[in-house]
């Protein structure tokens, strides 16, 4: 099932994508379709083991798929070599995890700078400062991760993921380790268009988190099934 709500050239076009692990007859992803415009925000829900992480790996250009068509920013992924995929991932894709996974021996500022150092295209290092300020941690820029609270660490993780201005941000349970209030603050930042204009795909188990996204899917039987638009959504994708 292909769903699109934009007339712009799509950022992601996936058609009939299949993937199965060697030695397993059942496909994890079986005929999956997805169409996503630049700047769109999507939430994907699903039971454990249904293939959400596999889908994220494929979207992050880390995992090869078996059949189907996957176009990312007008480039056919199947035709790209390992180095090209690394370059695409480095330039266009950001990732946020359930745990913050900051580099423990770097300060907040250095953690964010690291993302800029790894970015293939030149991004002003002033952006790191602006992002740290935007997530409200400018007064802790020289702190190490172990000197921050869980919510602060996740905010740094978010700032770091957004530093290189990726076209697509993949978020795997970004609020899974946080209390409700802190989680909502992180989501506010994640979905704040002033802070980040790119596309977001988040994987979550939390209905409350998914409800903040206008496009929501359930991953089941190897395919994405659209869920009804949330009435309580206060965020415009």
């Amino acid at each position: 099932m292909t769903v699109s709500c934009s007339t712009e050239p799509p950022l992601i076009r996936i058609e009939n994508l299949c993937f199965g692990y060697p030695g397993h007859t059942e496909k994890v992803l079986d005929g999956l379709d997805l169409l996503m415009a630049p700047g769109e925000r999507i939430a994907i829900m699903g039971r454990s083991g249904v293939g959400k992480s596999t889908l994220l790996n494929i979207l992050a250009l880390l995992q090869d798929f078996e059949t189907g068509d996957f176009t990312f920013n007008r480039r056919k992924v199947k035709r790209q070599g390992r180095r090209q995929k690394e370059q695409m991932r480095s330039a266009w894709i950001g990732m946020v995890f359930q745990a913050h996974y900051l580099i423990p021996y770097l300060t907040v500022r250095e953690n964010v700078d690291l993302a800029l150092e790894l970015a293939p295209r030149r991004v002003s290092f002033g952006r790191a400062e602006a992002l740290i300020d935007a997530v409200g941690l400018s007064h802790r820029a020289h702190f190490r991760p172990n000197q921050l609270s869980g919510g602060e660490q996740q905010r740094v993780g978010l700032a770091r993921a957004l530093a290189k201005e990726p076209l697509l941000l993949l978020a795997d349970e970004p609020t899974g380790n946080l209390d409700e209030e802190t989680g909502l603050r992180i989501l506010d930042l994640l979905l704040d268009r002033d802070m980040y204009r790119g596309a977001v795909i988040t994987v979550t188990h939390q209905k409350q988190v998914a409800s903040l996204f206008t496009r929501r899917y359930r991953l089941a039987k190897g395919r994405l099934h659209p869920l009804a638009a949330s009435k309580s959504s206060g965020v415009t994708p």
């Binding site: 180095r83 690394e86 991932r89 894709i93 950001g94 996974y101 900051l102 690291l114 993921a161 290189k164």
Partner: peptide
Amino acid sequence: HEEFGTLVALGASRGH
């Protein structure tokens, strides 16, 4: 591994 995984998530290659 955790640190390297983070670097990969930030766009680093294995070569990096």
